[in-house]
């Protein structure tokens, strides 16, 4: 587990690119977007935030699951929902950060699994608020990166569909 998903909320510009990317990457049925496992939002006039599962050392979600449906993937370090899930929703109640969720379109309990080691959100985040790397970026590194990237969601959406 050399790489991690580094989250730096104050770099978030609430462009919702991460949500789009996550939806597309996790869509089980083509054309029916999944609920994103990441959320960006405005906390107040001056602050944005981006939040996804913290992959806790002692996950509350895992502790309450009655069937062992939440397991850590040793390769990515992320907690994943497996096919043992019986849909009781205990995990959603237990996660202190609201990072376990229910996707009512696809009738699935969902959480961030860092896309099994290739997180879509970080790939498209234009500001370095989300970074998949072996070390966090300095503000300077993030600024350099942001200069080269378009932060226009439409341009990024085109980029996503091109692959």
């Amino acid at each position: 587990m050399s790489k991690r998903l580094y989250v730096t909320p104050y770099r978030c510009i609430d462009c919702k690119v991460c949500e789009q990317a996550c939806s597309l990457a996790n869509t089980p049925v083509p054309g029916v977007p999944a609920r994103p496992r990441v959320q960006s939002f405005k906390v107040d006039d001056q602050n944005n935030f981006v939040l996804l599962c913290l992959q806790c050392d002692e996950p509350s979600c895992q502790a309450v699951c009655p069937v062992g449906a939440l397991e850590r993937n040793p390769e990515t370090g992320a907690i994943e929902v497996n096919d043992k899930c019986i849909g009781c929703g205990f995990c959603v109640r237990a996660c202190p950060f609201g990072c376990m969720d229910y996707d009512d379109t696809h009738n699935e309990y969902i959480k961030c699994d860092v896309c099994k080691g290739d997180p879509a959100c970080a790939k498209y985040c234009p500001t370095g608020a989300l970074v998949w790397s072996d070390k966090p970026w300095t503000d300077q590194e993030a600024e350099e990166y942001a200069k080269k990237k378009s932060s226009d969601p439409f341009t990024i959406a085109l980029e996503m569909t091109k692959k």
Binding site: Q39, F41, V43, L51, V92, P96, F97, G98, C99, Y102
Partner: peptide, 9 residues
Amino acid sequence: AKVKRYEYA
């Protein structure tokens, strides 16, 4: 879950 996320932020 949504409110928990907001509160944490």
